[in-house]
Design a protein around this nucleic acid. Structure first.
Lengths: 249, 249
DNA sequence: CCAAAAGTGTTTTGCCTACACCCATGA
DNA sequence: TCATGGGTGTAGGCAAAACACTTTTGG
């Protein structure tokens, strides 16, 4: 390995001299278009869903695609993700977090495009999709295939990320109505994690955390005994969240 | 929010017509240089260290910088990270994983440059740094300041990532010699996590996992009773690793 | 009164924690 | 023989898991 190789400007030190013209240096670099893709998860009818549109590209005719857009020149990556969310869902108070960058040279048929995937969780009931450009629709996460680009991989990675994340952080509440029953909460965990949970232990677990506010209200219009409604106490959680420590693999 | 806005090619559907010329579409996008930065952690003398060079840029004169380089036009992101590692350390069998993309428009003084941070763990004793371009050196993670670009933030995020990751995955063994004593392993955990651990419980924990191979060999040249040497059974770990499940936040 | 889901407690088990003494080696 | 760290076991507490019956409501 020859590290005196001078093809890489960032690795090279030119005879110990410093580079004075940073702008010229950056201008000399090859450049690639950057997009942000939003993996927007929602929960409804006991299914985890993701918001997709039909691809605009003839190359991917009929295939489903994530909601993405080019990052504007002066825009933060996260800002671009929020912009896409707002344009597509009309919501601006949603959860959003970066998951991963995807940069395979061949992932876009029009040439190299690097994308940063952001994961977003929202409550489907909280907004109506009033816009149906490109057949914007919710899709069950389980039945995805024939997606455009590498979007299947992006969704899979995001789903893995969500499964792990939901166990360690109170993300679930972003997918539920503000007021929810414990049954709804448990269903959500069961669907996302793909496991069955014991109702009594689940309740004990959440009550012992003591982050649920009992609203003294009940479900309505259910064909059985209505469950109590709760909301999550985010303020208390933020104050009390513990430093997590346990070697376990 | 007007989604008939036509400034975003990926969001737009032109009167229901598909885009046939994907190449022209991509060519019309603004483009940004992409770099990969490697956060290379090593462990030595009971300190967690990170490999840094002096920045080449006059703008950052005297400041320390991560090892990074432009991603070549036909190169996978991960491939670029491995290339940088090989060029800088001469090692090609090292641990490497993507941590996060950093893309603030103002993070580079020469114009926008987006970087993808990769985290790497290696055993300092396994290779000598024969190359000292740009004062390549190991730095204690605790004493970093005055770094170039947003590299302090990148290191901090990578360190957080490592702290979490090392508790759930057997990464630690990438930082140790192939044969190690339990004391070395414990020191590593204590330093990375910044906690003190009970020796007996730590041993019990690792022995009960049953992933350590007893080599029936002992430390040498230590001024006290030598400890037994072990190596990690990666094969067994890969076969047995459990599906991790526990709601806990 | 029937169906459907809500709500509730106890026992067992395994794991993490706290804690103190003897052992092997080199100097 | 001394200094240094290596190596070991046990008891208590706590949290997770397993498990079944009664209650409430709507139809």
């Amino acid at each position: 390995m020859n590290t005196t190789d001078a093809t890489s400007p960032l690795l090279r030190r030119r005879n110990g001299k410093l580079i004075t013209d940073a702008r010229a240096l950056v201008a000399s670099y090859p450049a690639v278009p950057i997009t942000v893709d939003c993996v927007i998860f929602g929960f409804e009818e006991n299914e985890l869903k993701v918001l997709l549109i039909r691809s605009d590209l003839q190359y991917f005719e009929g295939k489903w695609s994530l909601l993405g857009d080019i990052v504007k020149e002066t825009e933060e990556l996260e800002e671009a993700a929020y912009r896409i969310l707002l344009q597509r869902t009309g919501m601006n108070d949603v959860f959003l977090e970066q998951v991963k960058a995807f940069g395979s040279p061949s992932r876009h048929p029009g040439g190299r495009v690097i994308t940063i995937a952001y994961c977003s969780l929202l409550n489907i009931k909280h907004h109506e999709l009033k816009i149906y450009d490109n057949e914007l629709h919710w899709h069950n996460v389980k039945n995805l295939n024939d997606m455009a680009f590498d979007h299947k991989e992006v969704v899979d990675e995001s789903y893995n990320w969500l499964q792990k994340r939901i166990q360690e952080h109170p993300l679930a509440f972003n997918l539920l109505p503000e007021k929810f029953s414990l049954r709804e909460l448990q269903n959500l965990y069961e669907v996302i994690l793909g496991v069955e949970l014991d109702r009594r232990n689940f309740r004990k677990k959440f009550f012992s955390m003591d982050f649920l506010i009992d609203l003294d209200q009940y479900e309505e219009n259910v064909p059985h005994r209505p469950g109590k409604l709760y909301k999550f106490n985010f303020e208390k959680y933020e104050k009390n969240k513990k430093k997590w420590f346990a070697i376990d693999f």
